[in-house]
Design a protein around this nucleic acid. Structure first.
Length: 485
DNA sequence: AAAAAAT
């Protein structure tokens, strides 16, 4: 491990970091800080939760000098308002030992405070594209002296939805500048595109290419979700012991709101964040989740990237994301800074092709999911997060495979929830059907599951949450056969 | 096709 001081970081910054208990640099920081400090353009790629923000942030602060003149010298562009707040806080911390001031510029908030801070001479601007351009158009934000430019989540910023804004912003900043692009995911075509805005950039990958992009300390579980009551299964996951905070991702804003209400009704401590909420409510949710006042956050992909919350042990994909990049970023809300985490994904019938895509792109090595098997209703209460788990997806245990899947028994299976007898294919219809695991540990214990059957001895036996059954739409499908991909 | 991002 290298210390920040050894990397050439100024003493006041070293002191500030030390006061937060941060002494050793992460690999991406070891690699990019010595290059960023003298002004090398960088495309920095490192896995989720491994310290990219300081990788670009420290050189930005240091290069402005201890007493920069008033006026915008540095611009950091991010894809969401919440990430703007977070990066603002990090930069504010890094600059706390010097006179440099930082301002967050993003929409959904009053103009006044932001404009005041700009007029007061803020040197570092962290913002989202819309409001940045808005204020620039109003001549309230002069970017012409911005000599430090960073795109955080750079591949997202250069994506179609943002590219025009980013191109415009690059016409406004200083032509001779230091430019840094950071992300966990940097597809080749995006790197090629990025070079247009940079000068002789060096591409730093703080990962072993053979290792792929997935975090070794995140265990990935994938379940077929058809004929599965996802609300019920998610409720069970939330009752598992050894759970810290949990982020649940949905595909749509409406689904996020519905699930948040539903789990809230069931007695869980939920908060939500999505684009249909007021900015004030969004920030209240994030603050409560970070502070631990709420331990379940239901979110759209607005929270998929960059958001750093301590002690998130579980990420649940209520709906599988569309592509491997989003999968990686969502899962990356857990397993940060060396900790372990679990990512659980539910794959709906119509989405099996997305799983195939992700499976292939992330090299999970799992064959197409053509089998189902029933698993313990205690599956999620038995989860232990294995240390340093790593490796390819293991094939689903065949012993339990229900090759001839029966029509689901559709009696009141939810009635006794997790109390049902288990390990019977006949009863599997509404139980989680794992199709893959990544991480090495066998989590579903089809044969030996009995050891955990406490017959009521468990402390997580459902009473934690008031039960209130509400049937989701019919959804009776006969499971089993290999779906057409 | 959804979500995000200005009002």
């Amino acid at each position: 491990m290298t210390t920040f001081a050894e990397l050439g970081v100024d003493q006041d910054i070293v002191d500030v970091l030390a006061s937060k208990g941060i002494v050793d640099a992460f690999p991406i920081q070891e690699q990019t800080i010595p290059l960023g400090l003298p002004g090398q353009d960088i495309i920095g790629q490192a896995k989720t939760g491994t310290g990219k923000t300081f990788g670009f942030g420290i050189p930005v602060v240091q290069r402005l000098g201890p007493n920069p003149e008033p006026g915008v010298k540095a611009l950091i562009v991010v894809p969401t308002r919440e990430l703007a707040v977070q990066v603002y806080e990090d930069m504010d911390m890094l600059t706390s030992g010097r006179s440099t001031s930082v301002v967050a510029i993003y929409g959904g908030k009053a103009y006044e405070g932001q404009i005041d801070q700009l007029k007061a001479g803020a040197q570092i601007v962290v913002g989202t594209p819309g409001r940045l351009i808005d204020l620039n158009n109003q001549r309230l934000l002069d970017l012409s002296s911005a000599v430090e430019v960073v795109l955080d989540e750079a591949d997202k910023m250069l994506d179609l939805g943002f590219l025009a804004d980013i191109e415009k912003i690059f016409t406004k900043v200083a032509p001779v500048r230091h430019t840094q692009l950071f992300s966990a995911t940097m597809p080749g075509p995006i790197v090629a595109l990025a070079r247009r805005f940079m000068s002789n950039p060096i591409h730093i990958r703080a990962t072993d290419p053979d290792e792929g992009l997935t975090q070794a300390n995140i265990q990935h579980l994938v379940y077929r979700a058809h004929s599965l009551d996802k609300d019920e299964v998610i409720a069970r996951i939330l009752q598992a012991d050894e759970r810290g905070k949990t982020v649940i991702f949905t595909r749509t804003k409406r689904a996020a709101q519905r699930l948040s209400d539903e789990l809230g009704d069931r007695g869980f401590n939920t908060a939500s964040v999505h684009g249909d909420m007021s900015q004030e409510a969004r920030e209240r949710s994030m603050a409560a989740f970070k502070a631990g006042k709420k331990d379940v956050l239901i979110a759209t992909d607005v929270a998929a990237r960059g958001i750093d919350v301590d002690d998130v042990t579980h990420v649940i994909n209520h709906t599988i994301p569309d592509d491997e990049k989003t999968y990686l970023h969502r899962a990356g809300r857990t397993g940060r800074a060396g900790k372990t985490g679990i990512a659980v994904t539910f794959v709906d019938w119509d989405d099996l092709h997305k799983w195939a895509l992700i499976n292939r792109a992330l090299d999970f090595g799992q064959p197409e999911p053509t089998e189902t098997y029933s698993s313990s209703p205690h599956l999620f209460t038995d989860l232990n997060i294995p240390e340093g788990t790593k490796g390819r997806l293991t094939t689903a245990p065949r012993a339990q495979a229900a090759e001839t899947s029966k029509p689901r028994s559709d009696s009141g299976s939810a009635e006794n929830g997790g109390r049902r007898r288990r390990s019977r294919p006949e009863q599997s219809a509404r139980e989680p059907q794992p199709i893959a695991e990544h991480g090495g540990a066998t989590v579903a214990a089809p044969e030996g599951a009995g050891t955990h059957d406490g017959g009521g001895s468990e402390h997580h036996d459902g009473n934690a949450a008031p039960r209130r059954r509400r049937r989701r739409r019919g959804g009776a499908r006969t499971g089993g056969g290999a779906p057409a991909a």
